[in-house]
Write a protein that binds this DNA or RNA. Structure first.
Lengths: 236, 236, 236, 236
DNA sequence: TATGAATGAGTATTCATTCAT
DNA sequence: AATGAATGAATACTCATTCAT
């Protein structure tokens, strides 16, 4: 129970304190407003320390990024597999994306903000996005092989869908832009996203230009004996 | 003496030049990197002039915003009405959103970036978002009254859907983050978004929490012996 | 008499003031101790101005150098020609070198000091030296063709001789290292240098390695039995 | 217990390591660029140790100087005596000066550089110079008593001559300013300096002001009608 | 003695903003 | 209206020096 040895060299602890302080300041003031001085103050350290551990603010962000990168291994919005599966799974997938976002919120926001102004970070961000999208794109392609969501460009669709999830997290959790008034019901938010994604990927026919007919599938209900179908899927 | 009437006073022309220059610089370097000096240089004016027309960079942005605000009167993603109607309409709705975004790209980006760092602009941005979402939210409520897209929170859904559209425009047109390699086919992009929105708003049943049953509309096609369909999926 | 137009744009005047201030500060505190702030204060300007005209201290020095370079066109210690000529000429040559040094004293010292610490300036200094030496080297070669100062390496000799002049100026005028007590008689200093140079370049026979014979005028005085002198040769 | 006697206490060894490291760093980066941290790193010690042995960088230099001072007891460019004697001797004298310079190169350079910026070191350097010059000055006075090198100011001449030697060492060995291309032939360099010094101190007549007659040995060759030779010189 | 993390004063540099012309 | 030089507050960053271990 009791941590015996220092467990991490003094320096290592300081480094971590600075990164945490960095996150805190990024969250409070945004990446661009963040000053080295603020971060040190937040960490309860003298100005100079920062430079003992990081070359500059960019470098701090690089370090943050490399940390969170390691933890999104399986692509966004898929539940531990390259498959886009049952509704339950999908809710799980959104939920775990949501958790991931919450965990790395300041890092992600900082990265997005930095990308706005700095080529190198734009590239980083591009990589993060692409990595996150790739698996979903493959999954959509596979769905199409099975006759589903025909007509969608898998790449564009994957980008749009992860974009929806990401930007909604941003709006609802970070910027609190929408619904600033009432408290956000996270569970409902997650299910809404899952619902929308389900719908978006379900229709066999899309809004193809000529399509004059009503858009969404008339509720067939009945859906009969579908229950066992995906029972095994989740696993991963 | 008579030479007074150039349709716009000299000052008015200068003011406009500065705003255009501001847009150009914002686009090139991002709002945060943009310096007053750059903007004046871009406008071919001396540094001092800027302050003859604007109090500071924020003020310039305020003016830009007030311009584009006037031009998005009917809410986002609806085609000149509060109705979420036919597929054809929906494509049109996305298309006009797309055009609107392209037109005000630098203004929108600058606003988003500024919101990152400045409470006042966050509030502005919130208003823009809310105004854009409101009509869609009402439309969804109406759909639900007709028995469609049951289970969706209209407010969250509207936010997520406009978010998808907006963020996709941002990624595909501004940041060129996804698909940096191949050229973007704008028409296909628009149709993809429309397709996804159609799907998202179509399903009568969604990924409602308890729903263990299948996620998307079962292919109406032959669907007959669909059970085996997914048998192969899991593997990965 | 009265200067009519501003004769030099305001900016040009400021630039010059800064360079003069720079020289003054370099002279007082040395290049390394010189701070931008000092220079601006010396010039009676705000801190920021400096950067309106120069990128940094190095850049200021570069500008100084380029100025003085233009004014030492004919090589050092030669009187307007590539010839090492009559004694009177040589005194003149030293005198004009002396004047040139006095004029560019702070620039030269700053350059030498900077070369101590900065590769780029070392290169600059090397060029200044080489340019200064080249003509003298040629002149010595020519003297040798006439049978004079045989045995000297023209390049090394030129370097040593200009070095003597330069370093003496440095010691006597800049550092005031030797003879700090009594005032320097500049005329005598010049003639001393000329005398030494004359001597150095005159002898037809030199201290060639094997030369066991007495080098210069054998002491006619009493010294009588000095021949055995070298018996003591110590040791090396 | 008995392991105490390592001939020099541990501390003494560390002190020496630091001084050696200091020399190495001074040589590599120059005195001004040298940082305490570099020196410690070079010595393979922690930053703090430095201050166990020296108050600061200046103090380190003081200690270096006091070491080399002890080893230049007899004045510069004289061979173990106050006499300026035979050519052979003179070569020897230059050679030993050359060796001495090589040995204390970093110390000397550091001192010169420090003198540039620090009154106390300027004073030190002055003393080193004066001590080095004193004997030569006396020797020249003695030569003059024998009728040689009449007209020279012994003090200025001594300063100039040692300056030539010192500055040439600096240029050729330290800065490698002249002849960066081809490798330096040390033996030839030494003999060149000896040759020049011999010449400088030999002439019974010098470039005394009034002296209109030509300076150096009249070409023994045919030179016959040489009068017109130099006629064209002055002009240029 | 030794370590190396921490401190913070000192400088360089930038850029929004003002002002004399 | 316009100019563009000047201002100086605000920050980033460095490095000598101290100090707890």
């Amino acid at each position: 129970m009791a941590a015996k040895k220092t467990s991490a060299s003094k320096g290592e602890r300081t480094r971590r304190q600075l990164m945490d302080a960095g996150r805190a300041v990024f969250r409070k003031t945004g990446y661009h407003n963040a000053e080295i001085g603020m971060i040190c103050r937040e960490a309860g350290k003298a100005t100079g320390v920062f430079y003992l551990y990081f070359k500059n603010k960019q470098h701090l962000l690089y370090n943050m990024i490399s940390e969170f990168r390691a933890e999104a291994p399986h692509g966004w919005l898929l539940h531990g597999t390259d498959e886009v599966s049952l509704a339950l799974d999908r809710t799980e997938a959104v939920r775990s994306f949501w958790q991931w976002y919450k965990k790395y919120q300041p890092d992600l926001m900082a990265l997005m903000q930095a990308a706005t102004v700095d080529k190198a970070f734009l590239e980083e961000w591009r990589e993060v996005r692409n990595r996150g999208n790739a698996a979903l794109e493959r999954a959509i392609t596979r769905l199409q092989a099975q006759g589903q969501c025909i007509g969608l460009d898998p790449s564009l669709a994957a980008s749009a869908i992860t974009g929806m999830a990401l930007f909604s997290c941003y709006n609802w959790l970070s910027q609190k832009i929408d619904f600033a008034d009432r408290p956000l019901d996270e569970e409902k938010a997650i299910q809404t996203l899952a619902h929308l994604i389900n719908g978006a990927l379900s229709s066999g026919e899309g809004a193809t230009a000529g399509s004059v007919r009503r858009v969404k599938a008339p509720p067939r209900k009945k859906s009969s004996s579908r229950k066992s179908v995906r029972a095994t899927l989740p696993g991963a």
